Simulated assay, not measured.
Amino acid sequence: MSRPHVPIRGRGTAINPHNRFAPTRSEAEDDGWFQDETPPTHATEVRRETAKTIITRNQSPDVGFDRSVNPYRGCEHGCIYCFARPSHAYWDLSPGIDFETKLIAKTNLAERLEAELSKPNYVPQPIALGINTDGYQPIEREYELTRQALEIMLRYRHPVSIITKGSLIIRDLDLLEQLAAQNLVSVAFSLTTLDDELKRIMEPRTAAPGARLRAMKTLHDHGVPVNVMTAPIIPMINDMELEAMLEAARDAGASSAGYVLLRLPLEIADLFEDWLRTHFPDRANHVMSLIRQSRGGKNYDSRFGSRMRGEGQFADLLSQRFRLARRRLGLDKREWAGLDCSRFAPPGSQMGLF
């Protein structure tokens, strides 16, 4: 039989599912010889990448931006539900614990970003920073790639939106204040729970909920626009906290809010269900049933227009709850709205493009 795994403290998962692009598959089997074996270590490794391009374009109709910059591949935060996990397979790595421990830093980010913003035909629109993986994950303390990107945004007067679970963002308050003074930045905090223990097992290396709210309050008090994303909402795990999270974010200075129903594309479905049965065996079947009821009987529905919200009774009720709470709390400003593209001016130019 397959060897059972035990949760690894500080990591979102203890398993490494098969890389879907690999030509062969291997599975560990317990033959009884290694009962006293010392568990393998799971230290974080960081590889350096020389990126050819740094601005990623998208045409998705259900996200509010058309370009993004991601300083890192993989994320040490270890959120079990992270929609970016399957992308690690493109690098011959597993979306499982590899995604949390074998990271890639785009160390030439500053050079490439400046080159792309300086192209004569470049037309500015807000850049979403750290969308696929968090730009303020722990390795940012050493590599400072997100800070480098913000320094360039400020120098070029280019609008930028940020979403993070990391309180490390306060380190860059000096840059964010200057960007905000020119209406060039908006920050969203992803908030999934107010429960420290649930945070510990669900997104182990993120900032604590209280730390995120304090960071939000600090930014707000310094004139930086802040928003909240209650994402993802997971049936019977954190959906009961929705209104409380929105209220806490409002009290910390958030002016708008959004939410996303849990998405389980590709390998994430097996990873999440394994996590669910490890930590919540008593309700695992019910949780998965509600997810499938909201996804047309499947683990995931990738259709634009429904993939973020789902459909069916649970999804409709969640949508109603969110709309009512958002209106009651005054969190109904348009997300990511209002950043100023007219100030854009590459260093050395006489004036902006507009």
Rank of each mutant, 00 (worst) to 15 (best):
R3A: 13
G10K: 10
G12M: 13
H18K: 14
N19R: 09
N19W: 09
A22Y: 14
E29G: 14
D30H: 13
F34P: 03
D36L: 10
E49H: 15
A51Q: 06
A51P: 01
K52Q: 15
I54E: 12
T56W: 08
D62I: 06
F65M: 06
V69D: 04
P71I: 03
R73P: 00
W91R: 12
W91E: 14
D92A: 08
D92I: 00
G96Y: 05
G96T: 01
T101D: 02
A105H: 02
L117N: 02
L117D: 05
P120F: 06
N121F: 01
A128P: 01
T146G: 06
A149V: 06
L150S: 09
E151K: 14
P159E: 07
V160Y: 03
S161K: 12
I162V: 14
I163M: 14
K165L: 10
K165W: 11
G166H: 13
L168Q: 15
L168G: 11
R171V: 04
D174Y: 10
D195Y: 08
D195C: 10
E203S: 12
E203T: 08
E203N: 12
L213H: 03
R214N: 12
K217H: 11
D221E: 15
H222G: 06
H222V: 11
N227T: 10
V228Y: 08
P232C: 04
I234N: 04
P235W: 02
M236A: 13
N238F: 12
E243T: 14
L246P: 09
D251W: 04
D251G: 05
Y259E: 05
L264M: 12
D270V: 13
F272V: 10
R277H: 09
T278N: 11
P281F: 07
N285E: 15
S289Y: 09
R292T: 05
N299Q: 04
Y300P: 02
G305F: 02
G305L: 03
G305N: 01
L317F: 00
Q320W: 01
L329K: 08
E335Q: 11
